[in-house]
Write a protein that binds this DNA or RNA. Structure first.
Lengths: 333, 333
DNA sequence: CTGTTAGCGCGTTCAA
DNA sequence: TTGAACGCGCTAACAG
């Protein structure tokens, strides 16, 4: 009766060992993926017993002794930006390819970070990937009890590795393209200025404008969204239309394009040239042939996953890994 | 020295108890969110000690005894469909709101399911939400050692709860709209027919066509993507253009719209009317004002999370929870 | 190569 | 209200 009850519940390694007629340790070794000394005959018996019982190792219990859970925390603000689609699917695939699973943590707001910290609503994961700009490296290390936090939000310190797109490259290429086409004046449509990444992006545009003798005649702040681009359009290209409009996201450029579609007959610019940022796959859609700035997402993901796969790949103080960006001309420029 | 070493490592509840000068049991109770008998004075000391040490409970170790990890597995094929964006962010937020975190598992292919099953690359989670159509209810229950698997792919059985959009409703509304506008002939652009959800969707269209005396003159199979809509367009509206084209995804409708944009001057249909499915937020963009069929995503998510929050909400054999869908007219119809 | 034993960090008896 | 002791499922270390 008691035995029956045990069978009903999820079988443990003890059950397997008992059925195979060996000790628990032998069963453990036989079941291990690594090569451990077990006689071929007993290994066979154990595997047989495990299959019979439908045994599945309890990774949580296992992690208690091995000190590694094969769990990666991915911290994001949210995932409703169009650019997220191109990224997270790859990230998931690559992470799983090295035998780890992803806990996706949505932070949403600064308050949420502090709440998570306070309540300890965070697992002791092996590593964390931080996209959200609401947390700095030290906070995240504390939050997850892990020294391996890859910062993708610009808020890294010398103790944490980071991978960042070298946006200056692509931005300079884009601005050079504009200059080559005779652009003299430009407007800039930005995202939230509180983000370090965004600040650096803006600085790159300013530097490039300066270098090519382009005058920045207007700056409008949006929030990366289509709607904010839509809303900004009248102010940007209304009264005194600049030769070119640069947006720090493709979605904002899409909003502007939709408001000014009559300025792009056959998708060719007349009044002004339009440049986006992100190189969304959406810009391959006929309706939004927006010249953009992009980088190899696969490479980006591969670099950060490399840190997860091999923690020794990072040594404190190491400079950021840079991913080259490039200008991708389409019809709007 | 040994003590120092312990301090350096992540502190355990034993360290807290020692510092507070109480037993581990008392520390455990004082730290518990639930009301447990502890003298006010000792509780204070424990909390103080915990703060001092920066103690954070190890949720994984905790789960070993409590048998609940507050971890939910979300199983998907992949996340690069546009419709995913509208869904997963909500799902994350709602799941976290009930104090649980999400492990996002990307299956990618049928082979992958079997590999996961074989290798046991899955934690003993509290529950699973299955969107991927590569797995059935029993497989998933086995995979996660959990009886609580909410099936969203149509492959549920009487032991697992399910929430499904009542697509027939919206489809009939859309077809009725077409009939009202004098549509006599229609083409249908579908997704992968191997999906149960898709099969039901197609059946609903056929039934609605029949009911309204609309003749189905052509069926083309796509894969839900923009590209497949783009590719299908010539065949669908080329030689013998039907009065209306119904697509089982908005993305495919977008592809067709882009090929046939000259047929929609001012976004108004001339040669044929166009209907999508999903009610993507993208259809609010000016360039893609596609009449669609949608449902309240917030409600959808709320219903499935309800099963997670309260496992007793489901009793075996209970019928699926239905989410009403409705026709959302835009300019293309 | 094998079996015994001692933890991993925690919650929960149960007797005091 | 307290604390000692036990067990959760597993692996590592050790002795055989």
């Amino acid at each position: 009766m008691v035995e029956q009850a045990r069978q009903q519940a999820t079988p443990t390694i003890d059950d397997v060992a008992a059925l195979a007629g060996v000790s628990r340790a032998v069963a453990s070794r036989a079941l291990s993926t690594e090569k451990r000394p077990v006689s071929a005959e007993k290994r066979e018996r154990v595997l047989q017993a495990a299959a019979e019982l439908g045994y599945r190792v309890n990774l949580l219990a296992q992690s208690l002794t091995t000190k590694t859970v094969n769990l990666i925390a991915v911290v994001v603000n949210h995932i409703h930006d169009l650019s997220d689609l191109d990224l997270f699917d790859r990230l998931l695939a690559e992470t799983q390819a090295i035998g780890k699973q992803v806990i996706l943590i949505r932070v949403g707001s600064v308050d949420k970070v502090e709440e998570f910290l306070r309540q300890g609503v965070a697992y002791h994961v092996d590593a964390a990937l931080v996209f959200s700009d609401f947390a700095d490296a030290e906070t995240v290390r504390k939050m997850f009890r892990s020294d391996l936090v890859v910062m993708l939000n610009g808020r890294h310190d010398r103790l944490s590795p980071t991978v960042i797109p070298d946006e200056a490259m692509g931005i300079h290429q884009a601005v050079a393209d504009a200059a080559q086409h005779g652009v003299k004046t430009a407007a800039l449509v930005t995202g939230r200025a509180s983000s370090l990444v965004e600040q650096a992006r803006i600085a790159s545009y300013l530097s490039a404008f300066n270098q090519h003798g382009i005058e920045l005649v207007q700056t409008v702040q949006g929030d990366y969204s289509y709607q904010s681009g839509h809303a900004a359009a009248p102010a940007v290209v209304g009264f005194d239309c600049p030769d070119a409009v640069f947006c720090t996201s493709d979605a904002m450029a899409m909003g502007i394009l939709d408001v000014c579609r009559e300025d792009f007959p056959g998708n060719r610019p007349t009044r002004f040239r339009l440049y986006g940022f992100d190189n969304l796959s959406l810009t391959d859609f006929d309706a939004y042939p927006i010249s953009s700035i992009g980088y190899d997402k696969a490479d980006y993901v591969r670099q950060m996953v490399r840190f997860l796969a091999d923690p020794t790949a990072f040594t404190p103080g190491q400079p950021p890994v840079l991913i080259p960006t490039r200008f991708v001309p389409r019809k709007t420029s």
